[in-house]
Amino acid sequence: MTVGAVPVRLQEVVDEFADLPRELRLEALLDYSRRVPPLPARLEGHRDAMEQVHECQTPFFVASEVADDQRVTLWFDAPPEAPTTRGFAGILAGGLNGATVGEVLATPDGFWTMMGLHEVVSPLRLRGMTAILARVKRQLRVQAGP
């Protein structure tokens, strides 16, 4: 596993943001906030089956599932009144769903600096993004077993 490689789909999202002028990055983030996949019935209303990301400033829950072929699907539950955090969820869902466990674990924790997000979103918020990814990785390590 190479630490520092960004999975292909996530790299596309990173490039999309990086190529945008600063003032359009917030719009792109808003766009991603609308692309959070709806929860499947087995998770809808079952926050106990998900993990709360306490570092986010609004109630935010994440669950990760690993298929037999080691490919990852992430599910997010974030309120509509927290569009910035929902935008992070949309980026992670769009960029990491379908990647392998190894690829997600190798994703650099601060990948968002390559997107220029720190120029338009406050540091406190961005720590939420880091925290979401950290919890996803921890969940995957637990599921992978020792």
């Binding site: 917030l26 719009e27 983030l29 808003l30 906030s33 400033q57 509509p80 009144e81 927290a82 569009p83 910035t84 955090t85 935008g87 338009v120 979103v121 406050s122 918020r125």
Partner: peptide
């Protein structure tokens, strides 16, 4: 707002946005 995207999701008609960070 604290959440710099809230305005875009819906605001009081006619309101402008003043972003504390940007």
């Amino acid at each position: 707002d604290e959440d710099v995207l809230l305005y875009e999701t819906g605001h009081i008609p006619g309101a402008v946005k003043i972003d504390w960070l940007n």
